[in-house]
């Protein structure tokens, strides 16, 4: 039976296995039980479940709402299984709102695939695809915090917080070339029918490189509407989905955030957002370099949709969101590439 079709009975067995694991990790917890287990829609790279754990410790009743993130058989990207957990641990207390991560488990004996467990944060995600007002009237305030937190992230010294092991973590520059090469390689591997528009964009990017960033930064990798939580009083409470995190040019995240597929600029003009980013990061946002990264973002998106297509075609993924992304979103971003290349005069 696939996880997609997990019955109530199977869910109950899954809850018992999680309880056994938590008991193993917390030997002082007595009578630990897990309930209210439910899969959360939207985790397309990893399976995400919410749950409640209750136990007694030193005679006191304890209750925790937790999130379990388990490796999917296949998803939109090939995530390194311990990467997200390590990032949550490293960025704790650095001024970026993230959940507290508790346990990482790589042994498949517990839940068949690697997983980690973290706190369930307050708030809910806004759905940028479904509503013109995904943040309940707080869109401008949320967007300002969105840019400020991204600026805070850019200011962090990745080596000082122990993230030198991330991709590009030891590099001093050349991030644009490394990342472009990485996504081109993913296209080469996954494309059954080559897309000449995307290849044209790659040639243009390579022929017109951006300047080096002022400093290497922690790049979230998927920093966008839909990947954070907000509370009813308009607070951005947690930034999630760090599985594509790496070290690079901080403008990579800024360009991804304003991609027209999920544009944060629907809620705050770009210049206002960049001002908030500059104030928090202490860096200057090079607008011309940002333009380079905007085209890069469209290429990267096409590569991600290609992996989605390949995962569904091979049967590794049975997720409908992965299938729909693969079959539909590529066209959106190829049109975006054509528009951006025309803006740059690359298409007469």
């Amino acid at each position: 039976m696939s996880d997609l079709a997990m019955s109530d009975l199977a869910m109950s067995g899954f809850a018992a296995r999680i309880a056994a694991y938590l008991t193993h990790r917390m030997p002082k917890a007595e009578g630990l039980a897990v309930d209210e287990l439910a899969r959360i829609y939207g985790g397309s790279s990893q399976e995400t479940y919410r749950l409640r754990a209750r136990w007694r410790e030193h005679g006191e009743a304890v209750e925790k709402r937790l999130i379990l993130r388990r490796d999917a058989p296949a998803g939109l990207v090939v995530a390194e299984r311990d990467l997200e957990f390590n990032v949550y641990r490293a960025l704790a207390g650095q001024g970026v709102p993230i959940p507290e991560a508790h346990f990482l488990e790589l042994d498949p004996v517990w839940l068949d695939r690697p997983f980690f467990i973290m706190d369930l944060c307050t708030g809910r995600p806004g759905d940028p695809f479904a509503s013109p007002d995904p943040y309940d009237g707080h869109d401008e305030a949320i967007a300002r915090q969105f840019w400020t937190h991204l600026g805070t992230l850019a200011a962090i010294d990745h080596r000082a917080v122990g993230l030198a092991g991330l991709r590009n973590g030891e590099a001093e520059g050349g991030f644009w070339s490394r990342e472009l090469g990485r996504w081109e390689g993913i296209l080469n591997e996954g494309e059954a029918v080559i897309e000449p528009i995307v290849r044209g964009a790659i040639r243009w990017l390579r022929g017109n490189p951006p300047p080096e960033p002022a400093k290497p930064a922690v790049v979230h990798g998927d920093y966008r509407s839909g990947n954070f939580l907000f509370t009813p009083d308009g607070r951005l409470s947690a930034i999630l989905d760090w599985e594509m995190c790496h070290i690079g040019d901080p403008l990579e995240d800024a360009a991804w955030a304003i991609d027209p597929f999920w544009p944060i600029t629907r809620h705050l003009p770009l210049e206002d957002g960049l001002s908030a980013w500059e104030a928090a990061s202490g860096l200057s946002a090079d607008r011309e370099a940002l333009d380079w990264w905007r085209l890069f973002a469209a290429v990267k998106a096409c590569a991600i949709w290609t992996t989605a297509e390949a995962a569904v075609q091979s049967g590794e993924s049975h997720e409908m969101i992965v299938a729909l992304s693969g079959i539909r979103a590529g066209h959106f971003h190829r049109k975006q590439i054509l528009a951006l290349l025309r803006e740059r005069g690359a298409i007469a």
Binding site: P196, L324, H331, R334, L338, I347
Partner: peptide, 23 residues
């Protein structure tokens, strides 16, 4: 220019017809 014109035509012909945004 001829190649870009062809690629734009291909993209338009292959475009899905039922909704503006994938989701």
């Amino acid at each position: 220019a001829a190649i870009w014109r062809l690629l734009e035509e291909i993209e338009l012909k292959r475009a899905q017809r039922e909704q503006a945004h994938p989701y």
